[in-house]
Computed example of a mutant assay.
Amino acid sequence: MEDVIEVLQRWAEYQKGHPGGGFEDFCRFYLATPKGKRQKDGRLDAYFKKAQPADTDSMFMMTMSRSTLAFWVYMRIALRDTPLPAIEDVMLCSALYHLDESRKTDIINFAMMEISTGTGNLNRLIEKGFVEERIDPDDKRSKLLVLSASGTKALKQCFAKAKMARDIFLADLTEDDKKLVANILNPLQEKHARLAIARKGKSIEEIHQEVFGEKKK
């Protein structure tokens, strides 16, 4: 009976903060805070309650973006004592690890970074000996980059640390939970990992019109 009373109380609290939220939204919200792990209200807790969006799209994107930001905090901690303490450097080396020998633009796009930022980071990685470059035999104006032996060794150290950060972040999820979320999100990331890069030169209004113009046809 106590559990029923608790659910009713939390449902009442949820309705006050989310007047547009339905019962299914409340259930997801309730299950996202397992019993025994709910913290006492404080300034930060109160802020999070107020920051909960009422509409589904905003809730979905807030959940994704803040989850990513939280994971990056763990990653920065994990990488502190590695040869590649900057997440951006790990992303670029990881891109090279998967692409093998490639041009700078392809590496930067694969890592989904801005060209200017990626170029500066790659140049520093070359100076430190983690990345090697040579003239492209098919285009003398271009250079090809490849991860050096020391770069590969450093990256594998980072992978081991990243696994620890990943284990910490996913500790409360079951294998089925992870499979479910991955199955939902993987098609989304596969689609937009390509399209976001192709659309970088357009305004957000142009992209919006392109997407929703297509859906109206």
Results as ranks from 00 to 15, higher is better:
residue 2 E to S: 06
residue 4 V to D: 01
residue 7 V to R: 13
residue 7 V to K: 00
residue 12 A to F: 13
residue 15 Q to V: 12
residue 16 K to T: 15
residue 16 K to I: 02
residue 18 H to Y: 06
residue 18 H to C: 05
residue 19 P to L: 03
residue 20 G to V: 11
residue 22 G to K: 14
residue 31 L to V: 12
residue 33 T to K: 13
residue 35 K to I: 11
residue 38 R to Y: 03
residue 40 K to G: 09
residue 42 G to I: 05
residue 42 G to S: 15
residue 42 G to F: 04
residue 46 A to Y: 12
residue 47 Y to M: 14
residue 48 F to T: 12
residue 51 A to S: 06
residue 52 Q to R: 15
residue 52 Q to Y: 12
residue 56 T to N: 00
residue 57 D to Q: 14
residue 57 D to H: 13
residue 58 S to R: 13
residue 59 M to G: 00
residue 60 F to N: 01
residue 62 M to Y: 13
residue 64 M to Y: 08
residue 65 S to I: 08
residue 69 L to Y: 15
residue 70 A to G: 06
residue 71 F to I: 01
residue 73 V to Y: 09
residue 75 M to F: 07
residue 78 A to H: 02
residue 79 L to D: 07
residue 80 R to Y: 07
residue 84 L to E: 01
residue 85 P to G: 04
residue 85 P to F: 03
residue 86 A to G: 00
residue 86 A to H: 05
residue 87 I to W: 10
residue 90 V to P: 01
residue 92 L to F: 13
residue 94 S to F: 12
residue 97 Y to F: 10
residue 98 H to R: 11
residue 101 E to L: 01
residue 102 S to V: 00
residue 104 K to T: 13
residue 106 D to N: 10
residue 106 D to L: 12
residue 107 I to R: 10
residue 107 I to W: 04
residue 109 N to Q: 10
residue 111 A to K: 09
residue 111 A to L: 05
residue 113 M to S: 00
residue 121 N to S: 05
residue 122 L to N: 03
residue 125 L to V: 08
residue 131 V to S: 00
residue 132 E to V: 14
residue 133 E to P: 01
residue 136 D to R: 06
residue 138 D to R: 14
residue 141 R to F: 07
residue 141 R to H: 14
residue 142 S to P: 01
residue 143 K to V: 08
residue 145 L to E: 01
residue 145 L to I: 10
residue 146 V to L: 07
residue 147 L to T: 02
residue 150 S to N: 03
residue 157 Q to L: 09
residue 158 C to K: 13
residue 159 F to R: 14
residue 159 F to N: 07
residue 163 K to D: 11
residue 166 R to C: 13
residue 166 R to F: 13
residue 170 L to M: 09
residue 172 D to S: 04
residue 173 L to K: 06
residue 173 L to G: 01
residue 175 E to T: 06
residue 179 K to D: 04
residue 180 L to P: 04
residue 181 V to G: 00
residue 181 V to L: 15
residue 183 N to T: 12
residue 185 L to W: 11
residue 186 N to R: 09
residue 187 P to R: 01
residue 189 Q to E: 12
residue 193 A to C: 06
residue 193 A to S: 09
residue 196 A to W: 12
residue 198 A to C: 08
residue 200 K to F: 08
residue 202 K to D: 11
residue 203 S to H: 09
residue 203 S to L: 07
residue 206 E to A: 13
residue 207 I to P: 00
residue 207 I to A: 07
residue 208 H to F: 15
residue 209 Q to Y: 05
residue 211 V to E: 06
residue 212 F to I: 10
residue 216 K to R: 03
residue 217 K to Y: 09
